[in-house]
Amino acid sequence: MSQPIAGQPLIDQPLIEMRGIAKSFGAVRALHGVDLRLDRGEVLGLVGDNAAGKSTLMKILAGAYSPDDGEIRIDGVPVKFDGPISARDSGIEMIYQDFALVPQLTVAQNIFLGRELMTRRFGLPVLDRRSMADRSRDLFSALGLRVPSVDSPVHALSGGQQQAVAIARATGFAAKLVIMDEPTANLGAPAIAKVRETISRLKRSGVAVIVISHRLEDIFAVGDHFMVMKHGRLIASRAVDDTHADEIVEMIVSGRDRRVS
């Protein structure tokens, strides 16, 4: 495991630093010691072939899996997540590929799932449903997103509306980092524009974003950096304006960085 570099000032630490992250599922080694660095307000595009380990790396960062080895630092401070709640408490939110919504629960219930607001009635703790509904409504209007009603069950919403709920949930709680797994897969052009707009808005407000996407044009449109993964390893990093789609595609396919020979 890497040690902190001696003499490095504590200020100016990157927002997120992952070092030597390794993870196996039984005999499958999904990650072989991956490093990642990310600054505030930076948008990172994480790309790679199927089964490269992108989702696994991000689920570790979001606290959904625990790494077998390696270290995660936030603002230079080592953290250990014992689950998604502690990652969310540290300001890391994830929008999952399938949105991770419970279809039978309402919009407001999904937004506050796992961090419900409570109040007291007759001395008993009860869910503060009114506050959660009000805050959900505020959240949607602040984000410029629209859903029919925060009291309707999520299964009654269209795909785009469900994504809006997932976005509102991930961005409504003072996140420092929002991770999006394939946010534009299966979406029509207007919804894709909305996702790009959301990413730009997060960036402007100093929130870092990691986008996993097979659509390189999304990352060229709103991203700062590419990270290319293959077979559980980091292959290359590139600034968006220092590369072009052909080079990224070539690295995704070959799994080699031609610039380091």
Binding site: G63, A64, S86, Y96, V102, L105, Q109, L113, G114, E116
Partner: peptide, 28 residues
């Protein structure tokens, strides 16, 4: 009724039954 409709525990029970994987990644 109180437990099912007014407590975290009841809501989380519904979430687990509704979509367990979503409940898991939300940290329930």
């Amino acid at each position: 009724w109180y437990v099912l409709n007014r407590t975290r525990f009841g809501l989380h029970s519904l979430a687990v039954g509704g979509r367990e994987e979503a409940a898991r990644v939300m940290g329930l």
